[in-house]
């Protein structure tokens, strides 16, 4: 078993105003993210989930504890480029991460920074655009694309570094349902076909349904950690954390309270309907 990212009693505080005590956004996080896994990190605003994500590629450095990326300590300045090349990051606002005004030039930005030879850049750009299904848009102007398309360009721009891990820091928050679906299916495909580790930070519960693992953050700590079925079963606990559960789980939970023998972990619409149909008929 190899680890993509490992944190050890990770603490982080944003600088406070003078005379005030720093507020810790992360207060002791111990996590191990396995290579090739698809991990969803949930939590309400201010739970520390975005801060956590930004420590994964040394955008933020630990104030206490450690973060290791494939064994590399993020506090080691000399490893900075190597770490950032391994862990790509996609942010919330699609407009604020596109550098160039031609799609291919934007995707080429990271390999250019890494000093990749010209022919190799060409290959990487074409592969990356194909991987996100945007190969028809090579010479388009990014500002004319839809939100979902822009985020796919941003993902391609990260893939062109040939990273082992992609972190999406609320990258779906500003998208409409179509855009969200585009981005989600893209990262699921990258995970499946290229074995890229995906860490998806979000507050949309339904995006967690197909994950290998769900981590729920609260108050700078890991509150829940398990498979989607294990996590969403904790209906009351999630609600107390300011999160909702998918309507499917809500329905199953209500039916159980009324004495129906349905399982709580049938997350998807199909599973939920199958479970209910069986119980109602019996």
């Amino acid at each position: 078993m190899s680890d993509m990212i490992e944190t050890e009693s990770l603490r982080f505080a944003y600088p406070a105003d003078e005379g005030q005590k720093p507020v810790y956004a992360l207060r002791g996080v111990d996590l191990t993210i396995e290579k090739g896994s698809f991990v969803v990190v949930l939590g309400h605003n201010g739970s520390g989930k975005s801060t956590l994500a930004k420590t994964f590629n040394a955008v933020l450095l630990p104030a206490g504890g450690k973060v290791y990326v494939e064994g590399m300590d993020t506090l080691d300045q000399s490893l900075l480029l190597a770490i950032r090349q391994r862990v790509g990051m996609v942010f919330q606002n699609p407009d604020n991460q596109i550098v160039a005004n031609v799609v291919e030039e934007d995707v080429a930005f990271a390999p250019e920074n890494l000093g990749v030879p010209t022919e190799e850049i060409r290959r990487r750009v074409d592969d990356a655009l194909k991987a996100v299904g945007m190969d028809e848009f090579v010479t388009h102007a990014p500002h004319l694309l839809s939100g979902g398309q822009k985020q796919r360009i941003a993902i391609a721009g990260v893939i062109a570094m040939e990273p082992d891990c992609v972190v999406l820091d609320e990258a779906t928050a500003m998208l409409d349902p179509v855009g969200r679906r585009e981005v989600l299916s893209t990262v699921h495909r990258l995970n499946r076909e290229k074995g890229i580790t995906v860490i998806l930070i979000t507050h949309h519960m339904d995006e967690a349904e197909e994950a290998d693992r769900v981590i729920v953050m609260n108050d700078g700590r890991v509150e829940l950690d398990g498979t989607p079925a294990e996590v969403f079963r904790q209906v009351t606990r999630l609600r107390r954390l300011g999160l909702t559960v998918p309507d499917t789980v809500d329905l199953l939970d209500r039916l159980r309270r009324e004495g129906l023998e349905v399982p709580l972990d049938a997350l998807s619409v199909e599973d939920c309907a199958a479970a209910i149909a069986e119980t109602v008929r019996s």
């Binding site: 480029l81 090349q85 990051m89 080429a108 930005f109 920074n113 060409r122 570094m161």
Partner: peptide
């Protein structure tokens, strides 16, 4: 931040697509 995450570190050692 996004540029730094994509390994931007000035013009040194940069190559070009075109």
């Amino acid at each position: 931040t996004a540029m730094e995450c994509r390994c931007y570190h000035g013009g040194e050692g940069r190559t070009k697509l075109h």
